[in-house]
Design a protein around this nucleic acid. Sequence first.
RNA 1: GGAGGGGUGCCCGAGUGGUUAAAGGGGACGGACUGUAAAUCCGUUGGCUUAGCCUACGUUGGUUCGAAUCCAACCCCCUCCA
Length: 419
Amino acid sequence: MSLPKSDFLRVLTERGYIHQCSDLAGLDAKAAAGEVVSYVGYDCTGPSLHVGHLLSIMMLHWLQQTGQKPIALMGGGTTRVGDPSGKDESRKILTLDQIAANKDSLKTAFSRFIRFGDGKGDAIMVDNAEWLAPLNYIDFLRDVGRHFSVNRMLSFDSVKTRLEREHELSFLEFNYMILQAYDFVELNRRYGCVLQMGGSDQWGNIVNGIDLGRRMGTPQLYALTCPLITTASGAKMGKTASGAVWLNADMKSPYEYWQFWRNTEDGDVERFLKLFTILPMDEIARLAALKGSEINEAKKALATAATALLHGHEAAEAAAETARKTFEEGALAETLPGVDVPRVVLEAGLGVLTAFGPDYAALTASTGEARRQAKGGGLRVNDIPVSDERMVLRLSDLTPEGVIKLSLGRKRHVLLRPV
RNA sequence: GGAGGGGUGCCCGAGUGGUUAAAGGGGACGGACUGUAAAUCCGUUGGCUUAGCCUACGUUGGUUCGAAUCCAACCCCCUCCA
Protein backbone atom coordinates (compact mmCIF):
# COMPACT_ATOMS: atom_id res chain seq x y z
CA MET A 1 0.00 0.00 0.00
CA SER A 2 1.14 3.55 -0.64
CA LEU A 3 1.57 6.12 2.11
CA PRO A 4 -1.22 6.02 4.66
CA LYS A 5 -3.74 8.84 4.47
CA SER A 6 -4.41 9.06 8.16
CA ASP A 7 -2.07 10.95 10.47
CA PHE A 8 -2.12 8.06 12.89
CA LEU A 9 -0.82 5.41 10.53
CA ARG A 10 1.49 7.82 8.78
CA VAL A 11 3.30 8.63 12.01
CA LEU A 12 3.42 5.00 13.08
CA THR A 13 4.72 3.94 9.71
CA GLU A 14 7.44 6.54 9.38
CA ARG A 15 8.65 5.96 12.93
CA GLY A 16 8.78 2.20 12.51
CA TYR A 17 6.13 0.98 14.90
CA ILE A 18 4.24 -1.26 12.55
CA HIS A 19 4.97 -4.93 12.38
CA GLN A 20 1.70 -6.44 11.24
CA CYS A 21 -1.81 -5.20 10.65
CA SER A 22 -4.92 -7.18 9.90
CA ASP A 23 -6.16 -4.67 7.32
CA LEU A 24 -3.95 -1.65 6.90
CA ALA A 25 -6.04 0.00 4.19
CA GLY A 26 -9.28 -0.51 6.04
CA LEU A 27 -7.85 0.81 9.28
CA ASP A 28 -6.31 3.76 7.48
CA ALA A 29 -9.64 4.73 5.98
CA LYS A 30 -11.28 4.49 9.35
CA ALA A 31 -8.59 6.56 11.05
CA ALA A 32 -8.73 9.21 8.34
CA ALA A 33 -12.50 9.40 8.60
CA GLY A 34 -12.95 9.79 12.28
CA GLU A 35 -12.29 8.55 15.73
CA VAL A 36 -10.61 5.24 16.17
CA VAL A 37 -10.88 3.92 19.69
CA SER A 38 -8.00 1.58 20.39
CA TYR A 39 -6.66 -0.35 23.30
CA VAL A 40 -3.57 -2.08 24.58
CA GLY A 41 -3.78 -4.54 27.45
CA TYR A 42 -1.25 -4.73 30.28
CA ASP A 43 -0.97 -7.60 32.68
CA CYS A 44 -0.44 -6.83 36.35
CA THR A 45 2.29 -9.37 36.87
CA GLY A 46 4.86 -6.98 38.27
CA PRO A 47 5.02 -3.81 40.31
CA SER A 48 6.14 -1.67 37.38
CA LEU A 49 6.10 -1.60 33.63
CA HIS A 50 9.47 -1.81 31.96
CA VAL A 51 11.11 -0.71 28.75
CA GLY A 52 9.59 -3.65 26.94
CA HIS A 53 6.16 -2.12 27.41
CA LEU A 54 7.27 1.24 26.15
CA LEU A 55 6.63 0.61 22.49
CA SER A 56 2.94 -0.08 22.94
CA ILE A 57 2.60 2.88 25.30
CA MET A 58 4.17 5.06 22.63
CA MET A 59 1.64 3.75 20.15
CA LEU A 60 -1.11 4.88 22.49
CA HIS A 61 0.67 8.20 22.78
CA TRP A 62 0.72 8.75 19.03
CA LEU A 63 -2.81 7.51 18.75
CA GLN A 64 -3.90 10.29 21.03
CA GLN A 65 -1.62 12.87 19.41
CA THR A 66 -3.24 12.16 16.07
CA GLY A 67 -6.73 12.70 17.37
CA GLN A 68 -7.86 9.23 18.31
CA LYS A 69 -8.90 7.78 21.64
CA PRO A 70 -6.67 5.40 23.61
CA ILE A 71 -7.74 2.89 26.21
CA ALA A 72 -5.21 1.47 28.62
CA LEU A 73 -6.61 -1.84 29.74
CA MET A 74 -5.34 -3.17 33.02
CA GLY A 75 -5.47 -6.94 33.12
CA GLY A 76 -6.77 -7.22 36.65
CA GLY A 77 -8.87 -10.16 35.51
CA THR A 78 -6.62 -11.85 32.97
CA THR A 79 -3.64 -11.69 35.30
CA ARG A 80 -5.52 -14.10 37.54
CA VAL A 81 -5.20 -16.56 34.68
CA GLY A 82 -1.75 -15.89 33.25
CA ASP A 83 -0.73 -15.46 29.62
CA PRO A 84 1.16 -18.49 28.34
CA SER A 85 2.49 -16.65 25.26
CA GLY A 86 6.22 -16.87 24.97
CA LYS A 87 6.65 -18.58 28.28
CA ASP A 88 8.21 -21.94 28.82
CA GLU A 89 6.70 -22.40 32.17
CA SER A 90 3.52 -21.56 33.93
CA ARG A 91 3.47 -18.26 35.59
CA LYS A 92 3.30 -18.20 39.29
CA ILE A 93 -0.24 -17.72 40.36
CA LEU A 94 -0.45 -14.31 41.97
CA THR A 95 -2.75 -13.57 44.86
CA LEU A 96 -5.56 -11.10 44.35
CA ASP A 97 -3.83 -8.71 46.74
CA GLN A 98 -0.63 -8.80 44.74
CA ILE A 99 -2.52 -8.15 41.53
CA ALA A 100 -4.34 -5.21 43.04
CA ALA A 101 -1.12 -3.76 44.40
CA ASN A 102 0.65 -4.21 41.07
CA LYS A 103 -2.20 -2.59 39.25
CA ASP A 104 -2.02 0.52 41.39
CA SER A 105 1.70 0.69 40.97
CA LEU A 106 1.55 0.38 37.19
CA LYS A 107 -0.84 3.24 36.72
CA THR A 108 1.64 6.01 37.46
CA ALA A 109 3.73 5.54 34.34
CA PHE A 110 0.84 5.93 31.91
CA SER A 111 -0.08 9.47 32.75
CA ARG A 112 3.33 10.58 31.48
CA PHE A 113 2.59 9.37 28.00
CA ILE A 114 -1.13 9.80 27.58
CA ARG A 115 -3.67 12.26 28.89
CA PHE A 116 -6.57 10.80 30.81
CA GLY A 117 -9.94 12.45 31.24
CA ASP A 118 -13.57 12.46 30.26
CA GLY A 119 -13.29 14.45 27.03
CA LYS A 120 -13.59 13.16 23.52
CA GLY A 121 -9.95 12.48 22.82
CA ASP A 122 -9.03 11.77 26.41
CA ALA A 123 -7.66 8.39 27.29
CA ILE A 124 -9.42 6.11 29.69
CA MET A 125 -8.13 3.33 31.88
CA VAL A 126 -10.27 0.31 32.58
CA ASP A 127 -9.74 -3.00 34.32
CA ASN A 128 -10.99 -6.17 32.70
CA ALA A 129 -11.75 -7.63 36.12
CA GLU A 130 -14.81 -5.43 35.83
CA TRP A 131 -16.44 -7.79 33.36
CA LEU A 132 -14.36 -10.94 33.72
CA ALA A 133 -14.69 -11.41 37.45
CA PRO A 134 -18.51 -11.58 37.55
CA LEU A 135 -18.74 -14.02 34.63
CA ASN A 136 -20.83 -17.09 35.14
CA TYR A 137 -19.02 -20.17 33.88
CA ILE A 138 -21.94 -21.90 32.18
CA ASP A 139 -23.24 -18.73 30.59
CA PHE A 140 -19.80 -17.80 29.39
CA LEU A 141 -19.26 -21.19 27.83
CA ARG A 142 -22.58 -20.96 25.99
CA ASP A 143 -22.18 -17.37 24.83
CA VAL A 144 -18.48 -17.20 24.12
CA GLY A 145 -16.94 -20.64 24.46
CA ARG A 146 -19.02 -22.10 21.65
CA HIS A 147 -17.32 -19.79 19.17
CA PHE A 148 -13.91 -21.27 19.87
CA SER A 149 -12.58 -24.32 18.14
CA VAL A 150 -10.12 -26.26 20.23
CA ASN A 151 -8.60 -27.60 17.04
CA ARG A 152 -7.73 -24.07 16.07
CA MET A 153 -6.62 -23.02 19.52
CA LEU A 154 -4.14 -25.86 19.51
CA SER A 155 -2.58 -24.45 16.37
CA PHE A 156 -1.61 -21.16 17.97
CA ASP A 157 2.04 -20.54 18.63
CA SER A 158 1.57 -19.82 22.30
CA VAL A 159 0.01 -23.25 22.73
CA LYS A 160 2.14 -25.09 20.21
CA THR A 161 5.46 -24.13 21.71
CA ARG A 162 4.35 -25.38 25.07
CA LEU A 163 3.22 -28.65 23.61
CA GLU A 164 6.35 -29.09 21.51
CA ARG A 165 8.66 -28.20 24.33
CA GLU A 166 6.87 -30.67 26.52
CA HIS A 167 6.05 -28.11 29.13
CA GLU A 168 2.77 -28.26 30.89
CA LEU A 169 0.03 -25.92 29.79
CA SER A 170 -2.72 -25.83 32.35
CA PHE A 171 -6.35 -25.52 31.38
CA LEU A 172 -6.36 -22.26 33.29
CA GLU A 173 -3.75 -20.76 30.98
CA PHE A 174 -5.30 -22.37 27.95
CA ASN A 175 -8.30 -20.14 28.59
CA TYR A 176 -6.26 -16.97 28.52
CA MET A 177 -6.72 -16.35 24.83
CA ILE A 178 -10.47 -16.74 25.16
CA LEU A 179 -10.59 -14.12 27.86
CA GLN A 180 -8.40 -11.73 25.90
CA ALA A 181 -10.57 -12.20 22.83
CA TYR A 182 -13.61 -11.52 24.94
CA ASP A 183 -12.01 -8.33 26.28
CA PHE A 184 -11.86 -6.96 22.77
CA VAL A 185 -15.54 -7.68 22.18
CA GLU A 186 -16.48 -6.20 25.52
CA LEU A 187 -14.46 -3.05 24.88
CA ASN A 188 -16.15 -2.67 21.55
CA ARG A 189 -19.55 -2.91 23.14
CA ARG A 190 -18.73 -0.53 25.97
CA TYR A 191 -16.54 2.02 24.26
CA GLY A 192 -16.79 1.37 20.55
CA CYS A 193 -13.20 0.16 20.52
CA VAL A 194 -12.24 -1.21 17.11
CA LEU A 195 -8.48 -1.62 17.28
CA GLN A 196 -6.24 -3.64 19.53
CA MET A 197 -2.53 -2.99 19.49
CA GLY A 198 0.29 -4.89 21.14
CA GLY A 199 3.62 -6.58 20.65
CA SER A 200 4.07 -9.01 17.81
CA ASP A 201 3.75 -11.88 20.26
CA GLN A 202 0.16 -10.82 20.84
CA TRP A 203 -0.85 -11.29 17.21
CA GLY A 204 -2.61 -14.59 17.74
CA ASN A 205 -4.53 -13.37 20.75
CA ILE A 206 -5.62 -10.21 18.98
CA VAL A 207 -6.76 -11.98 15.84
CA ASN A 208 -8.76 -14.30 18.05
CA GLY A 209 -10.58 -11.27 19.37
CA ILE A 210 -11.38 -10.08 15.86
CA ASP A 211 -12.73 -13.52 15.03
CA LEU A 212 -14.84 -13.69 18.13
CA GLY A 213 -16.15 -10.22 17.38
CA ARG A 214 -17.30 -11.28 13.93
CA ARG A 215 -19.13 -14.24 15.39
CA MET A 216 -20.69 -12.20 18.14
CA GLY A 217 -21.79 -9.39 15.88
CA THR A 218 -19.38 -6.53 16.48
CA PRO A 219 -18.38 -4.22 13.64
CA GLN A 220 -15.13 -5.04 11.86
CA LEU A 221 -12.27 -5.04 14.35
CA TYR A 222 -8.59 -4.47 13.59
CA ALA A 223 -5.24 -5.71 14.84
CA LEU A 224 -1.99 -3.77 14.80
CA THR A 225 1.25 -5.05 16.28
CA CYS A 226 4.67 -3.54 16.81
CA PRO A 227 7.93 -5.42 16.31
CA LEU A 228 9.75 -7.12 19.12
CA ILE A 229 12.70 -4.88 19.77
CA THR A 230 16.11 -6.46 19.96
CA THR A 231 19.35 -4.56 20.01
CA ALA A 232 21.58 -4.40 16.98
CA SER A 233 23.64 -7.24 18.42
CA GLY A 234 20.57 -9.38 18.80
CA ALA A 235 19.96 -9.27 22.52
CA LYS A 236 16.56 -8.71 23.98
CA MET A 237 16.17 -5.11 24.85
CA GLY A 238 15.81 -3.82 28.35
CA LYS A 239 17.96 -6.17 30.35
CA THR A 240 20.84 -4.73 32.30
CA ALA A 241 23.06 -5.77 35.14
CA SER A 242 20.55 -4.70 37.71
CA GLY A 243 17.66 -6.42 36.01
CA ALA A 244 14.81 -5.00 34.01
CA VAL A 245 14.72 -1.35 33.07
CA TRP A 246 11.72 -0.31 35.11
CA LEU A 247 9.66 2.72 34.38
CA ASN A 248 8.79 3.50 37.98
CA ALA A 249 11.24 6.00 39.42
CA ASP A 250 11.51 4.25 42.77
CA MET A 251 12.74 1.10 41.02
CA LYS A 252 14.98 2.74 38.43
CA SER A 253 16.11 6.26 39.10
CA PRO A 254 15.94 8.87 36.32
CA TYR A 255 19.72 8.90 36.30
CA GLU A 256 19.94 5.15 35.74
CA TYR A 257 17.21 5.39 33.15
CA TRP A 258 19.16 8.08 31.32
CA GLN A 259 22.25 5.89 31.48
CA PHE A 260 20.36 3.00 29.96
CA TRP A 261 19.58 5.05 26.86
CA ARG A 262 23.00 6.66 26.82
CA ASN A 263 24.57 3.24 26.35
CA THR A 264 22.57 2.40 23.27
CA GLU A 265 24.54 0.65 20.55
CA ASP A 266 25.47 2.75 17.54
CA GLY A 267 23.32 0.75 15.20
CA ASP A 268 20.23 1.31 17.30
CA VAL A 269 20.38 5.05 17.75
CA GLU A 270 18.24 6.12 14.84
CA ARG A 271 15.65 3.42 15.37
CA PHE A 272 15.40 4.21 19.07
CA LEU A 273 15.12 7.94 18.46
CA LYS A 274 12.12 7.27 16.26
CA LEU A 275 10.51 4.77 18.57
CA PHE A 276 11.25 6.11 22.02
CA THR A 277 11.31 9.86 21.67
CA ILE A 278 8.89 12.37 20.23
CA LEU A 279 11.62 14.44 18.60
CA PRO A 280 10.60 15.65 15.14
CA MET A 281 11.69 13.51 12.24
CA ASP A 282 14.01 16.11 10.71
CA GLU A 283 15.83 16.47 14.03
CA ILE A 284 16.17 12.72 14.18
CA ALA A 285 17.51 12.67 10.65
CA ARG A 286 20.14 15.23 11.64
CA LEU A 287 21.19 13.23 14.71
CA ALA A 288 21.23 9.97 12.80
CA ALA A 289 23.63 11.45 10.25
CA LEU A 290 26.35 11.91 12.90
CA LYS A 291 29.28 9.61 12.39
CA GLY A 292 32.04 8.14 14.49
CA SER A 293 32.36 9.49 17.99
CA GLU A 294 29.98 12.30 17.15
CA ILE A 295 27.22 9.77 17.46
CA ASN A 296 27.60 10.23 21.19
CA GLU A 297 25.79 13.53 20.80
CA ALA A 298 22.88 11.63 19.31
CA LYS A 299 22.97 9.19 22.19
CA LYS A 300 22.82 11.99 24.70
CA ALA A 301 19.91 13.52 22.86
CA LEU A 302 18.20 10.15 22.85
CA ALA A 303 18.81 9.66 26.56
CA THR A 304 17.58 13.09 27.51
CA ALA A 305 14.53 12.99 25.26
CA ALA A 306 13.51 9.51 26.38
CA THR A 307 14.05 10.33 30.03
CA ALA A 308 12.15 13.58 29.71
CA LEU A 309 9.15 11.71 28.35
CA LEU A 310 8.97 9.49 31.38
CA HIS A 311 10.38 11.57 34.22
CA GLY A 312 10.00 15.12 32.96
CA HIS A 313 12.45 17.61 31.48
CA GLU A 314 13.91 18.70 34.78
CA ALA A 315 14.84 15.20 35.86
CA ALA A 316 16.24 14.45 32.42
CA GLU A 317 18.45 17.53 32.39
CA ALA A 318 19.63 16.76 35.89
CA ALA A 319 20.55 13.23 34.83
CA ALA A 320 22.38 14.56 31.80
CA GLU A 321 24.30 17.03 33.98
CA THR A 322 25.21 14.34 36.50
CA ALA A 323 26.52 12.19 33.69
CA ARG A 324 28.43 15.08 32.15
CA LYS A 325 30.22 15.85 35.41
CA THR A 326 30.94 12.21 36.14
CA PHE A 327 32.08 11.07 32.73
CA GLU A 328 33.30 14.13 30.91
CA GLU A 329 34.88 16.10 33.73
CA GLY A 330 35.69 13.15 35.91
CA ALA A 331 34.44 15.31 38.73
CA LEU A 332 32.35 14.22 41.65
CA ALA A 333 28.69 14.80 40.91
CA GLU A 334 26.83 14.97 44.17
CA THR A 335 23.67 14.09 42.34
CA LEU A 336 24.82 10.52 41.75
CA PRO A 337 22.67 7.92 43.47
CA GLY A 338 23.43 7.92 47.17
CA VAL A 339 23.04 5.66 50.15
CA ASP A 340 22.87 6.86 53.73
CA VAL A 341 25.27 5.38 56.23
CA PRO A 342 25.03 6.03 59.95
CA ARG A 343 27.99 8.15 61.03
CA VAL A 344 28.75 5.76 63.88
CA VAL A 345 29.32 2.96 61.38
CA LEU A 346 32.06 4.97 59.70
CA GLU A 347 33.48 5.93 63.06
CA ALA A 348 33.80 2.26 63.88
CA GLY A 349 35.11 1.47 60.39
CA LEU A 350 33.16 -0.18 57.58
CA GLY A 351 34.69 -3.08 55.65
CA VAL A 352 35.01 -2.10 52.02
CA LEU A 353 33.43 -5.34 50.79
CA THR A 354 30.46 -4.86 53.05
CA ALA A 355 30.12 -1.29 51.84
CA PHE A 356 29.77 -2.46 48.24
CA GLY A 357 27.45 -5.30 49.22
CA PRO A 358 23.69 -5.44 49.51
CA ASP A 359 23.51 -3.81 52.94
CA TYR A 360 24.92 -0.49 51.71
CA ALA A 361 25.72 0.53 48.14
CA ALA A 362 24.22 -2.66 46.68
CA LEU A 363 26.60 -2.49 43.76
CA THR A 364 27.28 -6.17 44.29
CA ALA A 365 24.83 -8.85 45.33
CA SER A 366 27.08 -10.26 48.02
CA THR A 367 30.33 -9.56 49.72
CA GLY A 368 31.69 -12.59 47.89
CA GLU A 369 30.98 -10.90 44.60
CA ALA A 370 32.55 -7.71 45.91
CA ARG A 371 35.64 -9.71 46.83
CA ARG A 372 35.90 -11.15 43.34
CA GLN A 373 35.38 -7.78 41.73
CA ALA A 374 38.10 -6.36 43.95
CA LYS A 375 40.48 -9.10 42.78
CA GLY A 376 39.58 -8.35 39.19
CA GLY A 377 40.20 -4.66 39.67
CA GLY A 378 36.58 -3.67 39.31
CA LEU A 379 36.09 -1.78 42.56
CA ARG A 380 37.13 1.77 43.29
CA VAL A 381 36.76 4.00 46.30
CA ASN A 382 36.93 7.71 45.52
CA ASP A 383 38.23 6.69 42.08
CA ILE A 384 41.15 4.76 43.55
CA PRO A 385 41.12 1.02 42.79
CA VAL A 386 40.65 -1.21 45.80
CA SER A 387 43.79 -3.29 46.09
CA ASP A 388 43.27 -4.57 49.62
CA GLU A 389 39.98 -6.27 50.19
CA ARG A 390 40.44 -5.83 53.92
CA MET A 391 40.43 -2.09 53.52
CA VAL A 392 38.23 -0.29 56.02
CA LEU A 393 36.25 2.86 55.24
CA ARG A 394 36.43 5.56 57.91
CA LEU A 395 35.39 9.16 58.33
CA SER A 396 38.82 10.12 57.06
CA ASP A 397 37.88 8.70 53.66
CA LEU A 398 35.21 11.31 53.16
CA THR A 399 35.84 13.63 50.23
CA PRO A 400 35.74 17.39 50.78
CA GLU A 401 32.10 17.13 49.71
CA GLY A 402 31.45 14.86 52.68
CA VAL A 403 30.77 11.61 50.83
CA ILE A 404 32.57 8.43 49.84
CA LYS A 405 32.30 7.50 46.18
CA LEU A 406 32.07 3.80 45.47
CA SER A 407 32.37 2.58 41.90
CA LEU A 408 31.86 -0.76 40.23
CA GLY A 409 33.42 -0.67 36.83
CA ARG A 410 33.62 2.57 34.92
CA LYS A 411 29.95 3.32 34.89
CA ARG A 412 28.21 2.48 38.10
CA HIS A 413 28.68 4.78 41.03
CA VAL A 414 27.07 5.18 44.43
CA LEU A 415 27.82 7.83 47.01
CA LEU A 416 27.87 6.91 50.68
CA ARG A 417 26.58 9.78 52.80
CA PRO A 418 27.12 9.77 56.54
CA VAL A 419 24.03 10.71 58.52
C1' G B 1 -4.93 -46.82 37.05
C1' G B 2 -0.69 -49.48 33.95
C1' A B 3 4.26 -49.25 31.27
C1' G B 4 8.48 -46.44 30.17
C1' G B 5 11.54 -41.80 30.34
C1' G B 6 13.05 -37.64 33.22
C1' G B 7 13.91 -33.64 37.39
C1' U B 8 21.77 -30.94 38.02
C1' G B 9 24.13 -24.17 39.32
C1' C B 10 20.82 -17.69 36.14
C1' C B 11 19.61 -20.85 31.46
C1' C B 12 20.99 -25.08 28.36
C1' G B 13 23.64 -29.33 29.40
C1' A B 14 27.81 -33.20 30.96
C1' G B 15 28.55 -36.22 34.93
C1' U B 16 26.42 -43.18 37.29
C1' G B 17 30.34 -44.24 44.53
C1' G B 18 35.88 -40.70 46.17
C1' U B 19 40.94 -34.26 45.06
C1' U B 20 33.17 -32.46 42.26
C1' A B 21 31.40 -26.06 44.47
C1' A B 22 30.25 -30.13 40.03
C1' A B 23 32.97 -30.41 32.43
C1' G B 24 31.25 -27.51 28.23
C1' G B 25 28.27 -23.70 26.17
C1' G B 26 25.06 -19.40 26.65
C1' G B 27 24.02 -15.24 29.44
C1' A B 28 25.84 -11.82 32.99
C1' C B 29 29.61 -8.89 35.49
C1' G B 30 34.75 -7.03 35.65
C1' G B 31 39.61 -5.88 33.11
C1' A B 32 42.32 -4.40 28.45
C1' C B 33 41.21 -1.70 23.89
C1' U B 34 37.61 2.40 22.73
C1' G B 35 33.68 6.87 21.91
C1' U B 36 30.03 5.69 28.81
C1' A B 37 29.17 2.01 21.58
C1' A B 38 30.09 -2.55 18.87
C1' A B 39 33.69 -6.28 17.83
C1' U B 40 37.96 -8.72 19.98
C1' C B 41 41.08 -10.71 23.89
C1' C B 42 41.60 -11.92 29.27
C1' G B 43 39.35 -12.89 34.04
C1' U B 44 35.17 -13.99 37.21
C1' U B 45 30.42 -16.33 37.79
C1' G B 46 26.84 -20.46 45.62
C1' G B 47 27.27 -17.95 50.67
C1' C B 48 30.29 -16.37 54.88
C1' U B 49 33.60 -13.46 59.92
C1' U B 50 37.76 -16.97 53.23
C1' A B 51 45.05 -20.50 54.50
C1' G B 52 38.99 -22.14 57.02
C1' C B 53 33.74 -23.00 57.43
C1' C B 54 28.71 -23.62 55.64
C1' U B 55 25.01 -24.68 51.96
C1' A B 56 24.02 -27.11 47.18
C1' C B 57 22.43 -31.78 42.03
C1' G B 58 13.20 -32.49 42.94
C1' U B 59 11.76 -33.92 48.59
C1' U B 60 12.54 -37.13 52.82
C1' G B 61 14.93 -41.10 54.79
C1' G B 62 18.65 -45.19 54.16
C1' U B 63 23.36 -47.97 52.58
C1' U B 64 28.65 -46.45 52.87
C1' C B 65 34.78 -44.41 55.72
C1' G B 66 32.72 -41.48 51.55
C1' A B 67 26.70 -40.22 47.34
C1' A B 68 24.69 -35.65 42.28
C1' U B 69 26.02 -40.77 41.49
C1' C B 70 23.45 -46.94 44.99
C1' C B 71 18.46 -48.20 47.73
C1' A B 72 13.31 -46.83 49.48
C1' A B 73 9.18 -43.78 49.77
C1' C B 74 7.04 -39.39 48.15
C1' C B 75 6.30 -34.93 44.82
C1' C B 76 6.43 -32.98 39.87
C1' C B 77 7.06 -33.25 34.34
C1' C B 78 7.02 -36.04 29.54
C1' U B 79 5.46 -40.29 26.21
C1' C B 80 2.35 -44.43 25.26
C1' C B 81 -1.78 -47.48 27.01
C1' A B 82 -6.64 -47.63 29.95
